[in-house]
């Protein structure tokens, strides 16, 4: 290039590739269109969620008060104390069962199981995840209600719910332990740890945020389920009189009362409020997952490079 080629000399610009040719022009134009279309897709995803929240909120919030949470359903009105506590008990017990079993089994699958056993475990867990909740509920009905000559009980409901939640906890735990870099395992075993010590002292702290988010996810899914509970926990309008009696629960309240004629008190409004409480619960669990994950991300910074 010569010094004579001054600024603005088009032939030089073309030589340097600074002037976009037709093909580049087309790509830039396409890019601009995509830039307008993608936000639309984003809104299309968000719209139903926001609309749902708005709809439930506008029905539930105007009459939601502290007494709604502390009083039992009475006649065509009252509050949601019984279903709220029922859901807390059911999900609490189910989480304890599914959490313990799922985490232990997941850790076993990732570390100890033979490749074939691990494959079978994962396959069965996938199958169970895909099993309709109503089928799990029916199984619970046969195994825990009919077979034991019992009635609908909180126990039966919690156990059935835990079966439904189990594969989520199991799969996430398995994946979480499986994603620990193999070099960590070598370093731990090479330093003379047993495999159990490796799992607890090295792998668990690394896998923990993922395991915990799987557990919270399972809780959120379990809290909203109705089908596993209908034939097992039965239904009650009052708080459960212990583990061996039928119980009330939020999803059951919606199931039972959302379609009542609206001139009958405010059962429909209470159903909306039950739905609202479930959504708030799921939101709280999700925020908790994010907070925990963030804390651990900070600790593990630079680890999963």
């Amino acid at each position: 290039m010569t010094a004579a080629a001054g600024a603005g000399d088009l032939s030089v610009d073309i030589e340097l590739g600074l002037v976009p040719d037709r093909r580049v022009h087309r790509r830039v134009a396409w890019d601009r269109w995509l830039g307008r279309l993608l936000p639309l897709a984003f809104v299309a995803v968000l719209f139903p969620i926001i609309d749902l929240l708005y709809w439930i909120g506008s029905e539930a919030l105007p009459t939601l008060s502290w007494t709604t949470l502390t009083t039992n359903p009475v006649g065509f009105g009252g509050g949601l104390y019984a279903p709220l506590t029922g859901t807390v008990y059911l999900v609490g017990i189910a989480t304890a069962i599914a959490g313990t079993l799922g985490i232990v089994a997941g850790a076993y699958t990732a570390e100890f199981a033979s490749p074939r056993a691990a494959l079978i475990g994962r396959l069965l867990a996938n199958l169970l995840t895909g099993t309709p909740a109503i089928v799990v509920g029916y199984f619970g009905y046969f195994a825990l209600v009919l077979y034991t000559h019992s009635t609908f009980t909180l126990w039966a409901g919690a156990i059935t719910l835990s079966i439904f939640m189990l594969p989520y906890v199991y799969r996430v735990t398995d994946a979480a332990f499986g994603s620990v870099p193999p070099s960590q395992r070598e370093a731990s075993l090479g330093a003379g740890s047993t495999r159990g010590q490796y799992l607890r002292r090295v792998a668990l702290p690394i896998a923990f945020p993922q395991v915990l988010s799987g557990l919270f996810l399972a809780m959120a899914i379990g809290a909203g389920e109705t089908a596993p509970l209908l034939f097992t926990a039965g239904w009650s309008i009052t708080p459960a009189q212990g583990l061996s009696s039928p119980t009330s629960y939020l999803s059951g309240f919606i199931w039972n009362y959302f379609d009542q004629p609206s001139n009958l008190g405010h059962l429909v409004i209470l159903s909306f409020q039950a739905a609202f409480l479930l959504i708030v619960g799921v939101l709280v669990l999700n925020v908790a997952v994010q907070l925990v994950a963030e804390r651990y991300r900070r600790r593990l910074r630079g680890f999963f490079a």
Partner: peptide, 20 residues
């Protein structure tokens, strides 16, 4: 083998620090 690995230590190609 666990006893063996406590008596005969090992350092690897890449540093394998634990995230603690």
């Amino acid at each position: 083998p666990v006893q063996v690995r406590r008596r005969i230590g090992m350092v690897f190609q890449r540093p394998t620090v634990f995230p603690s």
